[in-house]
Simulated scan of single mutants.
Amino acid sequence: MNERMDRETLLARVRAQMHDKRYQHTLGVAETARQLAIRFGADPEKAELAGFLHDYCKCWSIDKMHDILVRHDLPQELLQGEKELWHAFAGAIVIQTEIGVTDPEILQAVRYHTTGRVGMTLLEKVVCVADYIEPNRQYPGVEQIRDLAQKDLDTALSVALGGTIQFLIEKQKTVFPLTLMAYNDLISRRGREGGFNG
């Protein structure tokens, strides 16, 4: 990121993109990501910044996000999939071009915070789990994931992704391939390693 942009300026830019409830969620994710980063050994500054920026495009119109994705030749399977995923991929592009974020770790954490992927980095896991468990989140099973996240990041993430997959199946919605692959990767690593590590 352009290091000359101070925190107040950054937050004002983020605030301008979204309604109040989404902004409160964003602040919750940033703080939770910072705490998880400290707990598990990721960079807390990068985690907090990715948390601030992860939903930058969430409240944008579908047409506006679609235009960004098409211009940057993102995969057809993304464009044909659930539109709920678009904001993460569009956001990674926009925060680079409009905010000046150039750190690939932060960009990847934003890009994959909704889908996950195979071989997620520690920072990606931190931001993804923080998005699931920040204090404003209320859904069945969130307390279990919060408890797990205090001990084992990979277990928390696998349970969270598993819950998302189950929810989508119950609603007869498509499951984005990256999410299935991320879940399978976490579960298979547990089998290979005899348990999860942060």
Results as ranks from 00 to 15, higher is better:
106 I>Y: 10
143 E>P: 00
7 R>T: 05
175 V>N: 01
159 V>N: 05
63 D>K: 14
45 E>A: 11
101 V>S: 04
172 Q>H: 10
147 D>N: 12
7 R>W: 07
98 E>A: 10
97 T>P: 01
190 R>W: 08
111 R>D: 01
121 T>K: 14
149 A>I: 07
110 V>K: 09
166 Q>V: 09
13 R>I: 06
59 C>D: 15
193 E>M: 11
85 L>I: 00
55 D>L: 11
43 D>K: 04
38 I>N: 15
187 I>R: 12
136 N>T: 14
92 A>E: 11
143 E>C: 02
68 I>D: 08
11 L>S: 03
98 E>P: 00
172 Q>Y: 06
40 F>Q: 03
7 R>H: 09
186 L>E: 06
95 I>T: 03
144 Q>Y: 13
83 K>A: 13
89 F>P: 02
138 Q>E: 14
13 R>F: 06
116 G>W: 05
153 L>W: 09
143 E>W: 08
183 Y>Q: 12
33 A>Q: 01
183 Y>G: 02
44 P>I: 08
71 R>K: 15
157 L>F: 05
126 V>P: 00
164 T>Q: 15
69 L>C: 05
152 D>N: 15
65 M>P: 02
172 Q>V: 01
85 L>Y: 09
38 I>F: 05
7 R>A: 03
85 L>Q: 07
130 A>W: 12
21 K>C: 01
198 G>A: 15
190 R>N: 05
105 E>G: 12
177 P>I: 03
76 Q>Y: 11
122 L>N: 12
108 Q>D: 11
103 D>H: 13
86 W>T: 04
192 R>Q: 11
93 I>W: 14
179 T>G: 00
121 T>A: 08
72 H>K: 14
173 K>C: 07
101 V>Q: 08
79 L>P: 04
149 A>M: 04
162 G>K: 00
94 V>Q: 13
188 S>G: 00
140 P>L: 13
